[in-house]
């Protein structure tokens, strides 16, 4: 019994090392997030108008995608190898999901916007969770799960900016949002047959201001911490994702 107990400890420790091993998948799908405003690809030098008639420009747009996974023909979820991916509208990147060779069908894409509670309380991280990426509250520990910054003549702050830093991992303040998107048959076929294997997710910035809740820039020009207001924006941006109808980069 005594020996068994110590063996158990060792095996628990060992699994941590094995986890990184990868089974031999052959094919992959590249998932890209493409920021749009009013349906058009985001341009940082353009002035836009939201549904309340407020003008705005975008200077920064970033969010964490966590636990990205594709549903395949066997109705199983195939996960991305990396737990988190920081999407930054200024940097073109994609996340690769390796799917079993010969996958005939992909039906759904799911992910969360944000960083798990556990990863908010586990100290210094690296990679996409490196606090140097500026998606981290240093005075009230926790990740900024999504960030939208820009300028508007309707802003109430002296510099004319709006800064929405949305996060919260504790109890009622939790701002993590789960997203699940269906992939049409035509799109699934096109993706699996194409050479680029790109699955593009459009990310509509306009939804931040008006979707589940109406949130005018004139009424709220900044959010810099977790809480009830941050959650309103999280509700709104949880509706900003859709599978694109094209496969252009």
């Amino acid at each position: 019994m005594k020996t068994f107990a110590s063996c158990l400890f060792i095996s628990l420790f060992s699994t941590g090392f094995i986890n990184g091993a990868h089974q031999g998948y052959g094919d992959s799908v590249r998932v890209r997030f493409r920021a749009t405003v009013n349906g058009q690809p985001l341009k940082f030098d353009s002035t836009y108008t939201n549904s309340f008639g407020e003008d705005f420009t975008v200077t920064a747009f970033r969010f964490y995608v966590g636990h990205l996974a594709l549903n395949n023909s066997n109705n199983t979820w195939v996960k991305s190898r990396t737990a988190y991916h920081l999407v930054d509208a200024k940097i073109s990147t994609s996340e690769i999901i390796e799917i079993p060779r010969g996958t005939k069908k992909i039906t759904k894409l799911k992910f969360q916007v944000g960083v798990d509670s556990l990863d908010n309380v586990s100290g210094a991280q690296d990679g996409d969770l490196d606090p140097a990426h500026g998606m981290f509250w240093t005075w009230n520990t926790g990740y900024v799960m999504a960030k939208l910054e820009g300028n508007s003549s309707f802003s109430k702050v002296p510099t004319g900016s709006f800064t929405y830093h949305i996060g919260g991992y504790k109890g009622v303040d939790k701002a993590i949002r789960n997203i699940e998107l269906s992939i049409s048959n035509e799109m699934a076929i096109a993706i699996l047959q194409s050479k680029t294997d790109d699955l593009i997710v459009d990310v509509e910035i306009g939804k931040w201001f008006d979707s589940v809740h109406p949130l005018k820039i004139a009424e709220k020009s900044f959010v810099h911490g977790p809480g009830p207001t941050a959650k309103l924006y999280a509700d709104n941006y949880s509706t900003m994702f859709s599978i694109a109808n094209d496969m252009k980069p």
């Binding site: 908010n120 309380v121 586990s122 100290g123 210094a124 606090p131 981290f136 240093t138 005075w139 009230n140 520990t141 926790g142």
Partner: peptide, 10 residues
Amino acid sequence: GINHIEVQPL
């Protein structure tokens, strides 16, 4: 406000 010794210096 800080939940972990490693991130305090930030």
